[in-house]
Write a protein that binds this DNA or RNA. Structure first.
Lengths: 149, 149
DNA sequence: TTGTATTAAATGTATATACATGCAAATGCT
DNA sequence: AGCATTTGCATGTATATACATTTAATACAA
């Protein structure tokens, strides 16, 4: 559906300005759907993302600032998200022996199990959410990667 | 820059799942830049968006729920955003005479002036942010509109 | 080695998002 | 008219974002 119709705006100054609004609106469309999927599991999309980053470490610990670097939202607060996950028993946090300023984070068995439970649902939902064919979705990824320079 | 390199992820399950993450990441890229532009003016991106919706009314009042419908983030809280704008003297809020449940919102002269001040900067920044040529940005808009179905 | 700068993480504050709930006004039904 | 339902908005609570500040540990230069 045309963005102009969805937000009841007559027209945009130019395609660049429409694109900015289009990306913000589409992100909200996706996050809203993700939220309802995560809800029953007591996770937020960002918490899920942090768990995925930890799983990607294959058992190696990773510091809080490295998590921050890999998060989708660079301004987010990895420290507090990790604290939430720890309270749920999904991650372990311990002082780094080499540099006591740093804190090593690892995903727990419980965290891995939760991810496995969610994984199939997420993958399927993501495919359903994006109503494009293979050619188009590959083109979209190309454009988004290029867009950021 | 390739998403995989920016968030240091080896690969995605498929292009659909990459596209979801790509949209979330690109939205964060845009909002971060927008925030720094709005900061000196004491506005958040969402507050700016509400002001734009009000200006689009050309002097006619609009209810809180109509604002909500047109907002980029459907789950946002128009009521509280309007309250913030009112505190800054950028909007007027008054009981709707026809239906006392409703509240009519209008942008003030001060609000219009602020928008005019910001407009050129925003338009220029948006063009700079999107590092695509005319053909590509039009293709991107087509794909995003189609994506949501 | 001592003082300064830098770095890593935590914390504080304001705003925004997500969603449930409350309340008053309006609507609809009998 | 009387009462239940719906609608429009406000408010409460938890989480997340944006950004400044703090605290402790480390690096480095004089």
């Amino acid at each position: 559906m045309r963005l102009e119709d969805e937000i009841q705006q007559k027209e945009f100054k130019d395609d660049y300005n429409k694109a900015v609004v289009n990306i913000l609106f589409t992100q909200s469309y996706i996050v809203t759907k993700q939220n309802s999927l995560f809800k029953p599991f007591g996770l937020s999309p960002e918490q899920y993302n942090v768990l995925r980053i930890l799983r990607g470490q294959n058992g190696n610990p990773i510091t809080v600032s490295s998590i921050q670097d890999r998060m989708l939202n660079k301004m987010s607060n990895a420290s507090r998200l990790v604290e939430k996950l720890k309270q749920k028993g999904l991650v372990l946090r311990e002082e780094c022996p080499v540099d006591r300023r740093q804190v090593d984070i690892m995903i727990t068995e419980k965290g891995l199990q939760l991810l496995n439970q969610l994984q199939t649902e997420i993958l399927n939902q993501n495919i359903r959410l994006i109503k494009l064919d293979n050619e188009e979705v590959s083109q979209l990824n190309f454009l988004l990667d290029k867009l950021r320079g």
